[in-house]
Design a protein around this nucleic acid. Sequence first.
RNA 1: GCGCCCAUAGCUCAGUUGGAUAGAGCAUCUGCCUUCUAAGCAGAGGGUCGCAGGUUCGAAUCCUGCUGGGCGUACCA
Length: 659
Amino acid sequence: MLLTITRNLEHALLQSIFEKYGVRYDSLSFTVPPRIELGELALPVAFDLARKVRQPPSRIAGELAADAGRLPGVGGVEVAGGGYLNFHLDREALAIALARSIAEGKFGLEAGEPAGKTIVEHTNINPNKAAHIGHLRNATLGDSFVRCLRFLGRQVEVQNYLDNTGVQVADVVVGLERMQNRTLAEVAAIGGKFDYFCWDVYAQVSDFYQRSEENKQWRSRTLQAVEAGGNPTAELAQHVAMRIVDAHLATMARINVSYDLLPRESEILHLHFWDTAFRLLKERGAVYYVDEGKNRGCWVMNTGEAQQEAVRAEVEDDEKIIVRSDGTVTYVGKDIAYQLWKFGLLGLDFHYRRYPLPPGHPGGPGHRLWITAMEGDGTPAPRFGHAERVYNVIDTRQAYLQSIVVQGLRALGYTAQAENSIHYSYEMVALTPACCEELGFPLSESDRKRPYVEVSGRKGLGVKADDLLDALEEKALGEVEARHTLPAEEARRIAHAIAVGALRYFLLRFSRNTVIAFDLKEALSFDGETGPYVQYAVVRAGNIFRKLEETGEKAPALAGDHPGLDDFLRENDEIWDLVYQAARLPEVVRQISQNLELGQLCKYAFSLAQKFNLFYHKYHILSETDPQKKRHLLLVTDLVRRQIEKALDLLGCEVPSKM
RNA sequence: GCGCCCAUAGCUCAGUUGGAUAGAGCAUCUGCCUUCUAAGCAGAGGGUCGCAGGUUCGAAUCCUGCUGGGCGUACCA
């Protein structure tokens, strides 16, 4: 629809420009006129041509306009603003095309995306403590991005990597074994929220390490035992990690986030993924052994410009340690192996087992969750990995490590895969000093003066995801009960949808490289630019149709005929704008697939909801006496509510039955 | 030291291949519930787009320098 129209226009104009002025452009970029009365698409190309052919822009624009208005879908062209080419679309044609497309469940989307699997890796929380708001930003970005790619027709596999043999799990194990002297059986008997319990244990371990040199040594000893496997410490570590994973999956299910596969670091080690990757890296000289200086005894990758022959002291600053002197592998090393596997370049595969879905999981009835394993369970598994493109949703502080993973691929000669390894980066969620004190975290004098304080699992400083969700649900329930008398179960369900809408919208509306300085009051708001505002617009629209049916009337069928629509849309710019904006959804999503800015989808949904609310206020549809006008108003309402609802779906938000 | 990022209304933020009069929300003030739900709508005030140069027909956006802040640069991830 819109895509076809702009592509046709572009094609015709490129040709026209070449014929008239002998100038060849690769592409033309359309912009949006400031007001809908000026048209839907604007092209400032005449300004650029003016310089090249030394003619006034208005004259060039006029000449181009002369033969650009005859294309299908275009209703007219005019020159404005001293040289802009403004295009007016055929209003009725677009409205009808959109209505039909929506009736087919396509929301205005046309033409499929090229095949080829995309892997999106997100969430990746260290399984040693409860999830906090920072993790929620990662998961909502990743999940909504996946929804957008799938909307565009891409085949997407979602992976949530479990670092079950890493330092952070080892730290909690040290806390349980060495500080609390607990055995596996005793830990297994701990009731209540285990992720909350470990949150506190983890926060205490730093102190324990600082108390003595011997305490500190337990970290390395425990990590080695965890990596080696087959000992009580490793068993305890796996109990902790998997129990926390279940807690994370449950938390994420609450906010409609799901996964296809849970790859575990333990299998990367024990199925010799790392050994294989290590051998490849050594063979290509991408890593080398250091026998002197500060990196003595380690295998390293040189990340700088300096050559190996240069002065040792200069080179070692550019070296990234891949294998430590005690023989254990760093996270980056394992990540290189994992990344190779994702592209199907390792020549090895995991075994897979079905993994139970968390309660209330958001996937449909056909949704399955798998986990990697040392041996399969007999159920035939899908073909995981073998991606054409990989997005790793990881915060921007890990940009350096991600660049090393890519450098590893490049060093092995996998240039295309290196280019298709995309670090989906975003800034952290931090707490304002005021928020910290409100939550009871004491701050130092210097921290109090900062613009924000980093969330830190190590210090136990942060807002737990489940706590925030509980607070949101409680507040939403209060609002629901103030408006409606409903069975408890329904009220709770509505409150939940509103809470998730508020939370996901709040986390997604910022651009990726904006640090979110978390403000509890703002996060708990349901007014203004929030998820519930957008949800409310759809609920209001739905009420119109509900009431209509109660009176026995029928809404106009989307795919039916709409006599008189042409004049109606021509005469009402505001209403036409609503239709046009509704038709833009696929373009917005396509843009996001390129720039990864989900905030643009939030903005889109919000502004469409805003325009709808204005329309809702201005036209009282059910009491409209002109039956034809009433049908048009209903059609527009239907188009808009369905597009907003789809946008909300892509944001991972549901529309409550009542608000 | 080096690398990356940020600075736009009182506050929180949009403004993404350079385009028409720089926009939202919150907060403040003034109105609007006998209507399809006021989680809403209308209106008002509020700007040296950090500073200084440069490129351009055109700069919040691109380049250079400066100021202030954040992050990274671990045998943590």
